[in-house]
């Protein structure tokens, strides 16, 4: 399951919530992050996990996929002759080429995700997972990231990387086993971007878009008639009563405009839209993610 969307929409929280739900259903699940920020381990209040599969809860693991480490692992798996590997790793020219080849880092990162998803793990004594969740890079870069295998397959026309890149592209675009969820926010521009993202994901990358999560939806706490009474109160009062009435009006206004964005989103995308509530929590922790897990639908 690939979780994607623009920056700051709560992709990691949704990825973790999906992971928590799957784990609670007894599925052995791993949440993969691809940048070094480790937001997932932060949600679990866990120390950095790095390039290791670390257990967060029963049935739930987390890994932060570092491209250099993935590259190393890939080479280790490809080259069985030890002397040759040592030669390669010591070689400055190899490191240079690896860094200079466009898209290679992204390719080995996706390669690692593929490896994690195999029931016949390439990594020695690797755990078998029922579900691999990818917290994908923010869009802008996101579509390009998922397209790397295809781009790469067309650059390197022959050789092992060519066929492996093709295999990775089939892995990403396998509608039966690989799905995508877009995370959006109930605001004008994030909605516009989610609509065009869905189109790009379907038409350009060719993945299956299974669901759009509209995250951070304010509850409708007040009715229109109540808002009118509160706005009269805000005019006539001072101090805390006024501040409280204003806060209620602000909530009312946001909840209302967000509902308009929700209906725009529903019209704009073809995947089913599921809303996730705004959490009035100072910081998002694992319990917050757990409360979302029950609402993923």
């Amino acid at each position: 399951m690939i979780v994607t969307g623009k920056g700051g929409v709560g992709k990691t929280t949704v990825a973790v919530a999906l992971g928590l739900r799957a784990a609670s259903e007894g599925k052995r699940t791993i949440v993969c992050e691809v940048a070094s920020q480790e937001n997932a381990s932060r949600i679990f209040d866990h120390a950095s996990v790095g390039f290791h599969e670390v257990e967060m809860e029963e049935n739930l693991w987390s890994i932060s996929i570092d491209p250099d480490e993935s590259m190393r692992e890939y080479v280790l798996l490809q080259l069985k002759v030890r002397a040759m590997r040592d030669l390669l790793f010591r070689s400055r020219i190899f490191n240079y080429l690896a860094a200079a080849t466009p898209g290679l880092k992204e390719l080995v990162t996706i390669g690692k995700i593929w490896e994690l998803a195999q029931l016949d793990r390439k990594v020695k004594s690797g755990r078998k997972y029922d579900l691999v969740i990818l917290d994908a890079p923010a869009t802008g870069h996101g579509v390009g990231f998922l397209q790397t295998p295809r781009t790469f397959a067309s650059i390197a026309r022959v050789g092992p990387v060519h066929s492996q890149a093709e295999q990775l592209d089939r892995f990403i675009t396998d509608h039966e086993h690989t799905g995508t969820a877009i995370v959006a926010l109930p605001e004008e521009m994030p909605v516009n971007e989610s609509v065009s993202l869905e189109k790009d994901l379907r038409d350009e990358v060719g993945v299956s878009v299974d669901r759009v999560y509209l995250n951070g939806l304010y509850p409708e706490r007040f009715k229109k008639s109540e808002a009118e009474r509160l706005s009269a109160l805000a005019e006539s009062e001072n101090g805390a009563a006024r501040a409280a009435a204003r806060a209620a009006l602000s909530e009312y206004g946001r909840a209302k405009s967000q509902r308009q964005q929700l209906s725009r989103l529903k019209k704009g995308v073809s995947a089913p839209v599921k809303t996730l509530p705004f959490l009035f929590e100072p910081e998002l922790d694992v319990e917050a993610a757990r409360s979302l897990a029950g609402k993923l639908g």
Binding site: M84, L88, T101, A156, V158, G159, P160, V161, H162
Partner: peptide
């Protein structure tokens, strides 16, 4: 080795 990996 690099050639073998990424294609000539």
């Amino acid at each position: 080795v690099f050639k073998r990996l990424v294609g000539f």
